[in-house]
Amino acid sequence: TYTWNTKEEAKQAFKELLKEKRVPSNASWEQAMKMIINDPRYSALAKLSEKKQAFNAYKVQTE
């Protein structure tokens, strides 16, 4: 089980997950979700809006 003390740690864990699963920077949210949804870190960020925000930040960083 994973635990995160801060929102920032949770966001980092979520981005690490995207990186580890090699989600391409041109992937849509739907494509990315299919690649990461079974990992416990997918739940790091509770709100869908937070997940999408972190995903978009990840995409910008990896382009």
Rank of each mutant, 00 (worst) to 15 (best):
P24Y: 03
T6W: 03
E16C: 12
N38P: 05
A44R: 04
E16Q: 10
V23I: 08
Y2R: 14
Y58F: 07
A46G: 13
L48N: 07
E8Y: 07
Q53V: 08
E63C: 15
K11Q: 15
S28E: 05
E63M: 10
K52P: 00
W29M: 03
K51C: 05
W4V: 05
K7F: 08
K7N: 07
N56A: 13
P24H: 04
K11T: 15
T3N: 08
N56G: 08
M35Y: 08
S43R: 13
A46D: 12
V23Q: 00
M35V: 05
D39Q: 00
A44L: 04
T3I: 13
K52Y: 07
S28Y: 04
A13D: 05
F55W: 08
S28G: 07
A44F: 04
T62H: 13
E20Q: 08
N26W: 14
K7W: 06
A44T: 04
A32N: 01
Y42C: 03
R22V: 07
T1S: 15
V60F: 14
W29Y: 06
M33G: 02
M35I: 08
A44H: 03
A10F: 03
W4E: 08
V60E: 10
V23L: 04
S28K: 07
P24D: 05
Q53S: 11
Y58E: 03
S25T: 13
K21T: 07
S28W: 03
E8D: 08
K19G: 11
L17K: 00
Q53M: 12
E63V: 12
A32K: 00
A54V: 09
K52F: 06
E8G: 08
Q53W: 07
V60Q: 14
A57M: 10
L48W: 06
N26S: 11
L18C: 06
K51H: 02
F14S: 00
T6M: 05
E8R: 08
Q61C: 14
V60P: 03
T3W: 12
S25V: 13
K47I: 07
A13K: 05
K52W: 06
Y58I: 03
A57P: 01
P40L: 09
K34Q: 12
E8F: 08
F14Y: 02
E63D: 11
R22T: 05
S49L: 04
R41Q: 02
M35D: 05
W29V: 02
S25K: 15
T1M: 14
Q61T: 11
Q53Y: 09
E50Y: 05
A44I: 04
M35L: 11
Y42P: 00
E20S: 08
Y2L: 15
L17M: 12
R41Y: 01
E8T: 08
A27W: 07
K7Y: 11
S43I: 08
K59S: 06
K15N: 15
Y42E: 02
T1H: 15
V60H: 14
V60C: 15
Y42L: 02
K34N: 12
E50P: 01
D39R: 00
K15F: 15
